Simulated assay, not measured.
Amino acid sequence: MKLNPQQLQAVKYLGGPLLVLAGAGSGKTGVITQKIKHLITDVGYAPHHVAAITFTNKAAREMQERVGKMLPKKHTRGLTICTFHSLGMRILREEAPHIGYKKNFSILDGTDSAKILNELLGGTGKEALYKTQHQISLWKNDLKTPEDIIQTASNEWDRQMAAVYAGYQATLEHYQAVDFDDLIRLPALLLQQNSEVRHKWQLRLRYLLVDECQDTNACQYTLMKLLTGAEGMFTAVGDDDQSIYAWRGANMENLRQMQADYPQMKVIKLEQNYRSTARILKVANKVIENNPKLFKKTLWSQFGMGEHIKIVACQHEQHEAEWVVGQIVKQKLVGGDKTRYADFAVLYRGNHQARVFEEALRSARVP
């Protein structure tokens, strides 16, 4: 991978905390993987002192594959590339006795925790259960305890939920179990309260690379901060224009907080896009220009202007699906054997919109 000047600067910079503002399609995964290679082969970091933290298992796998192709086995032995949840679990398994847990504690999925909450709520129906589960998850991601909620509760519902939360947590402890949110919350609290354990993990993970940091919640950001210590030997990669997890407690303010917590932090912007033509970028920049922004950036491309974008008004969703499928069939006819169905994509906002397109494609015999 040939790096552009900004990407190269991001890979080489080791003068302290670094925020890489990576616009869409600007090659951020390449920067992270090249930086891992640089840290291990050029700077001399031992692989087990380097950790790259991603948000999804898919992103972690992709990164592991890329690094595997770039470095020989001996240079990746002990290297950590995993999600926040996996890292949290690793810390918890090792440090469980510090928080009164056995090392073989069990991890509950959403269905398991719903059963416990359902009993505590006395079976009040699906909607109340979902609302409670979501609220407790948000509180945990915000590092709030039941006691915190009771102290600040402004209404009866919050007070009742705080009591359910307390009961739920007591049940988890009794069963020697944790839920997904605890996998990050408990290590964050442990590192906050126990300087010996904190120091041990800071010495172990000496350089941290964090992907999609605009999607971190308070809990993940706290864990990251505790692991990197005052020196802040980390590279955080993110983009305030691509934050999509607010509903799950993600807080874009963490990017602003990062600047306050690390005043010496360097910011490098990746604005060259390798995915789209200039016209698509121009339209995208226009669509998001009124979003509240923490950092100003303008994506550009060297792929030329590209084709015009059509905006089509349809009468209803069936008409829309038929029009889209009609376009695909037409283009396929014009392109002949050179055009494959795999060259087309239909994007929609929510899964509930897929069905109309599926039906229209089926009736037009498009696979």
Rank of each mutant, 00 (worst) to 15 (best):
R93I: 10
N155A: 10
V237P: 04
Q9F: 05
A163T: 14
K266A: 14
L79R: 06
G110Q: 12
A166V: 07
D239H: 08
I91Q: 07
I311H: 09
A246S: 13
D148E: 01
I53Y: 00
I116D: 05
H85L: 11
A345H: 01
H319R: 07
V197D: 01
K58D: 07
V366W: 01
I40Y: 06
E173M: 10
I99N: 02
Q257L: 15
Q7P: 00
H75N: 14
L208W: 00
T145A: 04
F357G: 07
A321C: 09
Q220E: 08
N217M: 01
K266N: 06
L255G: 03
P263I: 04
Q272K: 13
L255N: 03
T33M: 11
T298H: 08
N351D: 03
T152V: 13
E65S: 14
A230F: 13
H352M: 11
Q64L: 15
A163H: 05
K338S: 15
G23C: 11
G232T: 05
L21K: 04
P47H: 05
G238R: 00
M252R: 03
E95K: 04
K12C: 07
T33H: 06
E253V: 11
F84I: 06
M70D: 10
K266Y: 02
A52G: 02
I136A: 02
R66Y: 09
K102T: 13
G23Q: 00
K69D: 15
E253I: 12
L14V: 05
G336A: 03
G167Q: 08
L183T: 07
A163R: 09
Y175H: 12
W323D: 04
R206P: 04
T277N: 15
L129C: 05
L190I: 02
L92A: 07
K74W: 13
E62K: 09
V67E: 03
S276P: 05
L138H: 04
L120T: 07
G100R: 01
A364E: 08
L87K: 10
I36M: 13
Y341R: 10
D109Q: 10
I244L: 08
M1N: 03
Q135L: 14
A284G: 06
Q353W: 03
A284E: 07
L19I: 11
Q327R: 12
P72H: 07
V11Q: 05
D112H: 13
G229Q: 09
G336I: 07
F295H: 02
R90S: 14
R365H: 13
L186E: 13
K286E: 15
K282M: 12
Y348G: 07
V267R: 04
T171Y: 00
E127A: 13
V334P: 02
N285F: 00
L87W: 06
F295Y: 11
N155Y: 03
V283I: 14
K126M: 11
A153L: 06
E95V: 08
T132Q: 00
N351H: 09
Q169S: 09
Q264S: 12
P263C: 08
Q272I: 08
L333G: 02
L87V: 03
Q34H: 14
E359G: 00
Q315C: 10
A364C: 08
T235N: 02
P146I: 04
F303N: 12
K269I: 12
A278H: 13
R362N: 13
D261Y: 04
N285I: 01
E127V: 10
H75P: 03
I149R: 01
P187D: 01
G78F: 08
G68D: 05
N217L: 08
T277V: 14
G122N: 01
D109G: 14
T29N: 06
M258K: 00
A114T: 03
W300Y: 13
V67I: 15
